[in-house]
């Protein structure tokens, strides 16, 4: 049982990463990753909505008739997003202003509706919790990665502290939309490259193991 839950959780981080593998939730990923902090904030907000709505969808999954399930999911998601938006505006006004209109846009973040439809509506609450939390963490990690890279090259440092030498000329384009697209494109390419290397490594390992077994 624990093993199953662990599997549900871990797949959202690498193997089924919502951004790099499933290519979902691109809008906020590109829009708010102008810095590490913004990436974390958006990731946490999305994770909250993801977990809360998946949990709720799973709990009431037997009560919603099939025809209106998308409408029902949407109401649930929109409500949690508004809760998150109001909470952010009330307690973190600066972040709220920076993230701006992209917080309500979490409603149409395909990850949330996607997980609700594909997993939460078909599994128990505890498994839905593990799955959605894994996806949320995976999403946040990708945002953090993208945000740090963009901030590093655009301002020379992260979280306000300068890391690169003073002689480095800031790549302002990284903070602009063009930089977002380019960085994400290259990151996906890198991700795919690592994935294929891992896969071919596994194949040669198992092939080696098989020849060993044959020879013994």
């Amino acid at each position: 049982m624990i093993k199953q839950l662990y599997q549900d959780w871990i797949k959202g981080i690498w193997r089924n990463n919502p951004v790099f593998v499933q290519l979902l939730g691109m809008c906020p990923t590109l829009a708010v990753t102008t810095s590490l902090i913004n990436g974390i904030a958006m990731g946490c907000a999305t994770c909250f909505v993801l977990v809360a709505s998946s949990l709720m969808v799973s709990v009431i999954r037997r009560l919603i008739p099939g025809e209106v399930r998308i409408a029902g999911f949407t109401i649930i998601i929109a409500t949690f997003v508004t809760v998150a938006e109001l909470f952010l505006a009330a307690n973190f006004p600066l972040l709220s202003k920076t993230l701006g209109p992209y917080v309500p846009l979490i409603i149409v973040n395909c990850i949330i509706l996607g997980r609700a439809e594909a997993f939460a509506s078909k599994h128990s609450p505890i498994r839905a919790l593990a799955d959605s939390f894994g996806m949320g963490v995976g999403f946040t990690l990708s945002l953090v990665l993208l945000g740090s890279i963009r901030e590093l090259f655009a301002t020379g440092g992260i979280i306000g502290t300068r890391i690169l030498p003073a002689s480095f000329e800031n790549w302002v384009v990284m903070i602009m939309p063009a930089g977002a697209f380019l960085t994400l494109g290259f990151l996906i390419g890198l991700f795919n490259m690592i994935e294929s290397k891992l896969k071919s490594h596994k194949v040669t390992m198992s092939q080696g193991h098989m020849t060993q077994v044959k020879n013994s």
Binding site: I188, G189, S196
Partner: peptide, 11 residues
């Protein structure tokens, strides 16, 4: 190969 699909489209 690694850039095929989403990678090159984003670039």
């Amino acid at each position: 190969a690694s850039l095929k699909g989403a990678g090159i489209t984003l670039i």
